[in-house]
Design a protein around this nucleic acid. Sequence first.
DNA 1: TATGTCCTTTTTTTT
DNA 2: AAAGGACATA
Length: 661
Amino acid sequence: MLSDLNPPQREAVKYLDGPLLVLAGAGSGKTRVITRKIAYLVKECGFNPRHIAAITFTNKAAREMRERVGELLDGGQAKGMTISTFHSLGLSILRQEARHLGYKPRFSVLDAADAQAILSDIVKSPDKSSLRRAAAVISNWKNALLDPEAAMQQAGDEVEVQLARAYLSYQTTLKAYQAMDFDDLIRLPLALFQTEAEVLGRWQGRLRYLLVDEYQDTNGAQYALMKLLAGPVGRFTAVGDDDQAIYGWRGADVENLRRLSEDYRRLKLIPLTQNYRSSQRILEAANRVIRHNSRLSDKNLWSELGIGEPIQIVECKDDRHEAETVATRIDGHRFQTRNRFSDYAVLYRGNHQARVLEEAFRSARIPYVLSGGQSFFDRAEIKDITAYLRLIANPDDDPAFIRAVTTPRRGIGPASLERLGHYSADRHVSLFAALFEAGVQATLPAKQLQPLLEFGEFINRLALRAEREPAGTLLQDLLAATRYETWLYDVEDDRVARTRWENVGEFVDWLTKKGADEGKTLIELSQTVALMNLLEGREDAEVNAVRLSTLHAAKGLEFPHVFLVGVEEETLPHRECLDGDRLEEERRLMYVGITRARRGLTLTWCKRRKRGQDWLPCEPSRFLAEMDAGEVSRSGQPADPEAARAAGKQRLADLKAMLGG
DNA sequence: TATGTCCTTTTTTTT
DNA sequence: AAAGGACATA
């Protein structure tokens, strides 16, 4: 079973004498190590799959890991295993233990947008960026396990005192709504384990061996949670790479790697430096760039895959030209090599950069898929439907009530909601509960009261049915009764309405299928929706298309040919991150981008870039200079950009003709 | 009082 | 593109 692993990989799989940290460089087969180790624990060591927990960074990674483990084990054994993200694990702990924390088991989970909307009601006169800063500060407090009182005590200046007040008010509001944000999904299980030894003991008994992937991207709270679950002896394998830590802005702390060896004196360290993905030239480029960071160790990646093709650096006139260049090169290269579109990826720093690329790919008729960016579940029409689901499961969820009661329009507007809000605040009940109190009738004129009451009855009927009936019919009834489709076409252009309605259909189908497959009611389904995204439910069905992705979303993936675009100062590194730790994180981002490539790597940069109305002049990224040791092939553009564009188009047309004929 | 329309501005990365 | 704000209209 372990014969196709290299010696350090094999050692990592077999080591069970204590806590283990595998320092796994990019492409060194870490997923392989984790999945094999799980299989090894079950098949060779007699572990019950129920007692193993593997923690991944995304739901998608969790799904893939479950699949791979399933292939290694006998039928169905992977089913009982806990393979999930920290957040999903926290969520399932909380669903079971909610009562210990004064929450109902059907609490709502808010995404970042919902949470920020609540915060913006609390913070008084916020411009957008100060709101974001406030959200970040509060999130950092939460991840550092400070409650509002503690935050208040350590507040240094007036601004921090204000923020600590906002934090307190924010938490109180969440509790009133029976809602949690993402940070709570980690923080609250941890708080629970710290105070209730019995509960902790129960979960320690349930999860007896932990495997944590992408360990370098854990935050303080996640690490603390992991330590508690793994117990004092440290029954865990953590796998990580300090050079790929790219989530510092989200509270992740690379220091957790160092802390691990301080907290566990017996910690065993196994480095994996043989790379099975990329040519030597690509690895050398990556090594040269990352050398400029201060690092835990000077590990150098190496491979036996040959020197490989030269890395290309292409200078472009502007971002549109860059996009067209990439499209043209991909099309040409694919034609010459008979590759598939899915052998190529275009990676960039920020989502907005995808826009020009999409245009270029559309006009060149190159199929593409976007990853990263707006999740399926962030779309307005999906949030509309989930607002209904949230409200059905949790009548205390005021934000869900507001969204559902006003979508589609039913004659209830801001004035009515404000009156209802005052009434409910006075009586300390939720908006939904307030509807059914006799007193509201005095507050509201009949014209507004009637649709409100009808809405209340409607939700009540659905909630009653939701306990038993299959999700499918209920959802159909919900859509029919609200006449959601009609409203969409009323409010939007036909084209837009059509795609939105298709999205709704897809979501409903997905829920219906999931409900039928897993025997879950709509209520149960609604409890997990908050943490999902597009990539989980479907897709990935081997589409032959070029991948457009942010660097962050590309972590863990690999492609035969990678185009890294916008390699400019102020873009990569991003202009908000030009010094200190943040610059190092940008460099790691560059490193992650480079190491996605197996054989071909092309980096492009623009002399100018459109930003809003006007043009910004750009300079090549410092990372290009850091990477360059003369082994790259550089090309600029012909003097006349219009001629170049025409030539490109012509070339494209020629290729099309050859392909077609 | 509710709602739709026509402006504006915006862009770091995401569980 | 899309979200938020000011204004007009029913």
